[in-house]
């Protein structure tokens, strides 16, 4: 009886934290919307600079990894710890692929002289400067969340291995999964905002 209510409490705590994350990124999206209204042409021009295919690829990678994390919770519920570990390992691999893509994407942009406070942006159009400023802040903060999510998934993976997370007690995996899905949620909005502006 006690454990039952405890599990619910753990989950509510995690959701409360997720709400604060939603408002954090929501605030940044408001900033984007307000500046988009002020500099629509520059934002469209900036969006054309970004590679839509890499963006779409990263979306697919995150969606697939979200699925494997959700599936690993199903596996642990069915007392199949081995499969849960394999699914988590695959999710971690997806996280690495995402970050490598991001690395090359940022690298190319920086190679073209597009980075915060660069000559091209500072002396160029103010709208473009704002667009890429927001791009680096939002994708950077999101990338940080990907790294934190991967750490949480790794911890869950080791807890399954050591038996601390099991079919009767898997709140840690549940909450790590929720965090990973949040990372996916944010990317679902980041992708059209930055890559698909027309």
């Amino acid at each position: 009886m006690h454990r039952e209510s405890d599990q619910v409490g753990i989950k509510i705590g995690m959701w409360l934290f997720l709400y604060s994350e939603i408002i954090l990124f929501g605030g940044l999206f408001v900033l984007y919307a307000a500046y988009f209204f002020e500099h629509p042409q520059s934002f469209v021009a900036g969006g054309k600079e970004l590679n839509r295919i890499i963006g779409a690829l990263n979306t697919i990678v995150l969606l697939v990894s979200s699925f494997t994390v959700a599936a690993s919770i199903t596996a642990i519920r069915q007392d199949n710890g081995k499969r849960a570990q394999q699914l988590l390992l695959f999710s971690l691999l997806c996280g690495v692929v995402f970050l490598v893509n991001k690395y090359f994407e940022w690298g190319t942009k920086i190679g073209h002289g597009i980075y915060p406070n660069s000559e091209t942006l500072v002396n160029g159009e103010p709208g473009l400067n704002i667009f890429f400023g927001l791009y680096y802040v939002i994708t950077g903060l999101h990338g940080l969340h990907v790294i934190i999510g991967m750490i949480l998934l790794t911890v869950s993976l080791f807890f399954i291995r050591s038996g601390r997370v099991s079919t009767s007690r898997y709140a840690m995996l549940d909450n790590a999964g929720l965090y990973w899905h949040l990372v996916d949620l944010i990317w679902i909005f980041v992708f059209p905002l930055f890559y698909l502006v027309l």
Binding site: K11, Y19, A34
Partner: peptide, 28 residues
């Protein structure tokens, strides 16, 4: 999920809509 999480989530989304809506109203 139970009602606590569902309703608190709806509350968060409502707040987000107010924040985005009113800010955009002002800007527009």
């Amino acid at each position: 999920e139970g009602p606590i999480i569902v309703f608190s989530f709806i509350g968060t989304v409502t707040f987000l809509i107010i924040m985005i809506g009113f800010t955009f109203w002002d800007v527009a």
